[in-house]
Design a protein around this nucleic acid. Structure first.
Length: 125
DNA sequence: CGCATTTGACCCGCGC
DNA sequence: GCGCGGGTCAAATGCG
């Protein structure tokens, strides 16, 4: 983990979706890029340097553990984060980021111990 | 006093 | 058309 900040927050530019552009015409809800990675952690709350406000928690089927929904508390930043454990492996936490950060990190993060897998989920536009 | 967390309700899309 | 699964909101509460 030399440069985790680059790994966790790649330069996702070009997908600037309008917020209140929900007219009935063209451009129907642009899909924000999603980025997911799995980590070995004992806590769901991984401090990546950003501020997250939990706005929901739902139990997913086929998973004994609930999924938590977080949103970035930054102004104008509508980045969402989704955290869930793997069924059968409570030691593995899957974190899914949705959207792009428009603000730099304000706090150095060191909680990313072991990143197992990373995957880019391209928006099915 | 301000803000983050919590929990249930509500809403939406999809499949049957 | 209804039911299920998933996602978000919103009011209340607790804590710093």
């Amino acid at each position: 983990m030399e440069d985790r900040s680059e790994v966790l927050f790649p330069s996702f530019h070009g997908v600037e979706e309008e917020e209140e552009e929900k007219h009935k015409s063209r451009k129907k809800k642009e899909r924000e890029p999603r980025f997911a990675f799995q980590t070995r952690s004992q806590v769901d709350i991984l401090d990546d340097g950003y501020r997250w406000r939990k706005y929901g928690q739902k139990a997913v089927k086929n998973n004994p553990f609930p999924r938590s929904y977080y949103k970035c508390t930054e102004k104008g930043c509508r980045v969402k984060k989704q955290v869930q454990r793997l069924s059968g492996d409570e030691g593995v936490v899957v974190t899914t980021y949705q959207g792009v950060h428009t603000h730099p990190v304000d706090k150095p993060s060191d909680n990313f111990h072991h990143i197992l897998t990373q995957m880019h989920i391209f928006p099915p536009i």
